[in-house]
């Protein structure tokens, strides 16, 4: 069954990707967009400009850094929530639904709401007893981490909860018969079984954060404060404010490579690429 899948892959992935790679080698801007095929071919100049003259390197460091922090932060919260809602109790369905709210809210709603919370005279400063800025300056980085963490942990929870559902009850019973306490059960029975779904959640979470545009855009606006000038926002600004389409696509290609690394590591780990499954 190569043909349908092959054609689909060609149309959906290969053609756009090839176009993107080609455009990243052109001097494509507002002056040449109308006849873009004729835009001057400039080799790797866009890549050189992206690395040398723009904030790309800083943006990559920032994106990777905050995404890793958020992903690591999501893990204990998501797992704890999944384990806490595993046993039956009254109102469990409601609690499980409520826990998903941050994840299902549209990013611009999350962004707008937190934007209000983080105003200099907003709730954040009042509750924390702090003063000053959250949406600009060094603290803005932590504002981004907090908001992404708030919006992102339910994904870990969701996949961990799904993993827990598929755990065999008899294993629990056997562990209990062997006299295992809750911690031993969690440590030696539950967590090893969750490795697959949870690592998938972590990879998705990391990729989602690296690629997240709407939230930082709504929270901080453009031009973006230096401390939160993440990769997608930088790419957006080059395309839609400076009309440097070639340069912007070169940045997008770099970010593609960036997200491809954890993806490849993950695929390798779970052997999805060979179609043989995990074990």
């Amino acid at each position: 069954m190569f043909l349908p899948g092959g054609v689909l892959t060609l149309l959906v992935i290969v053609v756009p990707l090839a176009l993107a790679l080609y455009i990243s080698l052109l001097d494509l801007d507002q002056y040449s967009i109308r006849e873009w095929v004729g835009a001057e071919f400039i080799g790797f100049e866009n890549y050189v400009e992206a690395v040398r003259d723009s904030n790309l390197v800083h943006a990559i460091g920032l994106s990777v850094g905050y995404s890793a922090l958020v992903t690591v932060g999501c893990l204990p919260i998501g797992l704890a929530a999944a384990v806490a809602t595993q046993d039956r109790f009254k109102g469990r369905g409601l609690v499980r639904s409520v826990l998903l709210v941050p994840y299902v809210l549209p990013a611009f709603v999350v962004g707008s709401t937190w934007r209000i919370i983080f105003q200099p005279d907003g709730v954040a400063n009042e509750v924390l007893g702090t003063s000053g800025l959250w949406l600009n300056g060094p603290r803005s980085f932590w504002a981004l981490v907090i908001v992404q963490l708030w919006a992102g942990w339910p994904l870990v929870y969701l996949l961990a909860a799904a993993g827990l559902q598929s755990l065999d009850v008899t294993v629990h019973e056997a562990a209990a018969l062997d006299g295992a306490g809750w911690w031993a059960k969690l440590r030696h029975v539950v967590l090893p079984q969750l490795r697959g779904p949870v690592s998938l959640a972590l990879v998705i979470s990391f990729l989602h954060n690296v690629n997240s545009f709407t939230l930082p855009f709504v929270l901080f606006g453009v031009p973006s404060p230096y401390d939160v000038e993440v990769l997608p926002v930088l790419t957006y600004v080059e395309s839609f404010q400076n009309f440097e389409f070639g340069l912007s696509v070169a940045m997008a290609v770099v970010s593609l490579v960036l997200v491809a690394i954890p993806m490849a590591v993950y695929l390798r780990a779970v052997r999805l690429d060979t179609g043989r499954g995990q074990r």
Partner: peptide, 24 residues
């Protein structure tokens, strides 16, 4: 000029990056 949009962005960016000082 077709470059105005970039100039406008740079002018605004100076204010954005000065806001931490402004706040202090």
């Amino acid at each position: 000029t077709g470059g105005w949009s970039a100039v406008q962005l740079e002018l605004t960016n100076v204010v954005v990056q000065s806001i931490p000082d402004l706040s202090a």
